[in-house]
């Protein structure tokens, strides 16, 4: 029953430090996304290129649109690359600094997770605070990993912002002192079921931000209102949709796994694999919504924007499942660690 309180305190300090760095990173990302004086000079060229490519894409059957896009090399930066490379480098300085800061913040954050785990010598997701702490770290990790394959730095503002918000909640509303596990959670299944749930949440969150961008971008492509000017530098809505979908598809598989692993654990703990406990209900609801999302994408008559809205309903259910269901609904899953 010994808890290393020094380490636990270190962990709290590290969380605060990480939050400060996330905040600064967010500002740089926001500058990259919304600011930028060079925009005007390149914008016409960019717009022209974008139009050409959308026209080329839309005259093909919707059924195959998504798969007809150019491979990565041509993506994201394809249009702006027509402008001089020096102005581009300058313009993305915010993104580069933001990414470096994000890496730094992530290292602090990871250290916070590790010290917390070491302080109690167990997995760092035994209550809501720890869950948020670890889930946000995984979200940043997933984001940085995706970034290696594909330039998604335009998401940086919302990744660092979202993580910042969640960490803020974790050390205030959800704050729980370091302690050992309660018997109900003391099982190796906690090391299987929960991290996969965390990974799913991270993936689905990133997919959802992409879905928001996709919707905005398609408004930008069709109506081009002033307030969406900053969207010029984002990839086309078709590209955004595809990345969002791919990530959501992975997230759906991991969510399916979460559901199945949860059912197996439920059998071990509560003598039945499924009993419509409120947490089970919402996990099921989330799963069905994302199944509908995947179907909608393959169904005629469901345009990309409508499909993206389903994605957003999905993430809303995920968040509801984690917050409202954990805190306010009574059920067998009352492990929030809150009073």
């Amino acid at each position: 029953m010994d808890v290393n309180t020094d380490l636990a305190m270190w962990s709290n300090q590290l969380i605060i430090s990480a939050m400060i760095v996330y905040a600064v990173a967010m500002i740089f990302f926001a500058f990259d996304l919304f600011g930028g004086r060079e925009l005007k000079t390149t914008q016409d060229k960019v717009a022209a290129t974008a139009k050409v490519s959308t026209v080329r894409r839309t005259n093909r059957k919707t059924a195959t649109t998504a798969v007809l896009d150019p491979p990565e090399t041509e993506d994201d930066e394809a249009a702006p690359s027509t402008s001089s490379s020096t102005s581009r480098a300058k313009r993305r300085r915010g993104a580069r600094i933001g990414t470096s800061l994000l890496v730094l913040a992530f290292l602090l954050h990871a250290a916070a997770v590790i010290t917390r785990a070491l302080s109690v010598m167990r997995v760092p997701w035994g209550n809501m605070m720890e869950y948020v702490l670890t889930a946000t770290a995984i979200t940043v990790l997933v984001y940085l990993t995706v970034n290696i394959k594909k330039d998604v730095r335009y998401l940086g503002t919302f990744v660092s912002g979202g993580v910042l918000l969640c960490l803020g909640l974790a050390i205030t509303v959800f704050y729980t002192p370091a302690a050992k596990l309660i018997p109900a959670l003391d099982s190796y299944w906690i090391a299987i079921h929960v991290p996969i749930a965390i990974l799913s949440t991270a993936l689905l969150y990133i997919s959802a931000i992409l879905a928001v961008f996709q919707i905005l971008k398609s408004v930008h492509e069709t109506k081009d209102p002033k307030w969406l000017r900053f969207m010029h530098r984002l990839p086309s809505s078709v590209d955004l949709e595809r990345i969002s979908y791919t990530i959501a598809a992975v997230g759906f598989i991991t969510w399916t796994f979460t559901l199945i692993a949860g059912a197996i654990w439920a059998e071990v703990a509560w003598s039945r694999y499924w009993g419509w406990d409120s947490k089970e209900i919402w996990t099921f609801v989330v799963w069905v919504i994302y199944a509908a999302y995947l179907h909608a994408r393959a169904t005629r008559g469901w345009g990309p924007t409508k499909v993206a809205v389903l994605n957003l309903i999905g993430i809303a259910a995920v968040i509801f499942n984690f917050t409202v269901v954990n805190v306010y609904f009574n059920g067998l899953h009352s492990y929030s660690g809150l009073d």
């Binding site: 029953m1 010994d2 729980t176 302690a179 050992k180 596990l181 018997p183 660690g337």
Partner: peptide, 18 residues
């Protein structure tokens, strides 16, 4: 059954082994 008599805050008194 054992319960936590060392932890701080709302973790005090939580069950640890059954």
């Amino acid at each position: 059954s054992t319960f936590d008599d060392r932890a701080a805050g709302n973790q005090f008194g939580q069950p640890r082994t059954f």
